[in-house]
């Protein structure tokens, strides 16, 4: 029973890194647009399938074209954001509500497209790294570290550091942070809210799609996987506290550990139930996230 405990922790920790990247992008998009994007899981799905088909056609290592996936989806997100912006700045009805409905409709459409084009089957992205693993032995503890999951963590660290640099050290990051604090005041300071939001949405979509490729290398992918990852993203963001980026890694690692615990010790079918249970408990006790610093 306890023999597998370190293994579960390590697996969860390694996979948690990828959730960090998704959730940071998601939080960023929430920060500037003030709506949550229900299509997040679908962007992950689309990215994973782009990776899958590129690997199949080009027969090269999927991790090599991560930048390509990012560029393609960042462009899609950048071009798409003005539509959401238009809904958000509408005068009729309730724009916030409508924007939420809109992203939901978008998710539906992408899911339908995915099912039509990719079919109902599960695939996995073949990566040269998937086979490799190395073992660590510390005393009586014995842990296997799959190389691909370690790569996932390294990727997550790289993305997180890059985003940290972008947000904290550049003018663009300053603009993004200003926008998420107060849109009107930021506009008065000469920040082009529309274009900055488009960039942020593009970055978020690109990162989600890229993470989708890594998820495809580790788990299996199918056209229906989107809603599960949408819930995972919500879980991380709500646990961290909506809009509180520093809490994201902890919540993401917790999610990874929960997931791997259910895979190893219980029925994996209960994972979503456990996720909902934790989400519910956190919302009941501390709605501002585990650290009480959300909005």
């Amino acid at each position: 029973m306890f023999l597998l405990l370190p293994q579960a922790l390590v697996d969860g920790f390694l996979i948690g890194g990828i959730y960090v990247t998704i959730a940071i992008g998601f939080s960023l998009a929430y920060g500037v647009m003030h709506i949550i994007d229900f299509a997040v899981g679908e962007w992950i799905m689309l990215g994973a399938f782009l990776g899958f088909y590129l690997t199949r056609w080009l027969q090269i290592e999927p991790l090599l074209f991560l930048p390509l996936v990012f560029i393609v989806f960042a462009a899609i997100g950048y071009l798409f954001q003005p539509v959401i912006h238009r809904v958000l700045s509408g005068k009729k009805g309730n724009p916030l509500l409508m924007a939420l409905v809109f992203t939901f409709g978008l998710a539906l459409m992408i899911k339908g497209l995915g099912l039509t084009v990719f079919g109902f089957y599960s695939h996995s992205i073949p990566s040269a790294l998937s086979a490799g693993s190395f073992s660590l032995e510390i005393g009586s503890l014995f842990v296997t570290v799959p190389v691909i999951r370690l790569t996932g963590l390294i990727y997550a660290l790289a993305i997180t550091l890059a985003l940290h640099y972008l947000l904290k050290k550049t003018d663009f990051g300053l603009a993004v942070r200003a926008l998420s604090q107060n849109k009107d005041a930021a506009g008065l300071m000469g920040i082009n809210a529309k274009r900055t939001s488009s960039y942020v949405y593009g970055i978020y979509v690109g990162i989600s799609a890229m993470s989708g490729v890594l998820i495809g290398c580790i788990f299996s992918i199918s056209a229906q996987m989107g809603s599960q990852y949408t819930v995972f993203s919500f879980f991380v963001v709500v646990l961290a506290g909506m809009g509180y980026l520093s809490g994201v890694p902890w919540a993401a690692f917790l999610l990874g550990v929960v997931q791997s615990f259910f895979l190893i010790y219980f029925n994996p079918g209960w994972t979503l139930l456990a996720v909902f249970g934790i989400l519910y408990a956190v919302l009941l006790v501390s709605p501002k996230g585990l650290f009480g610093k959300g909005v």
Binding site: Y30, I35, I36, F38, L96, L97, L100, S227, Q228, T230, V231, F234, F235, V238, M242, G269, W270, L272, L273, V275, F276, G277, L279, Y280, L283, L284, P287
Partner: peptide, 24 residues
């Protein structure tokens, strides 16, 4: 109970997760 005290986004998320959880 926990979600209707909060902003609408939380409610949307929680009901979405509830649907998936009931399904599971």
């Amino acid at each position: 109970l926990p979600t209707l005290r909060l902003k609408g986004a939380y409610f949307a998320i929680a009901t979405w997760a509830l649907a998936l959880a009931v399904q599971q």
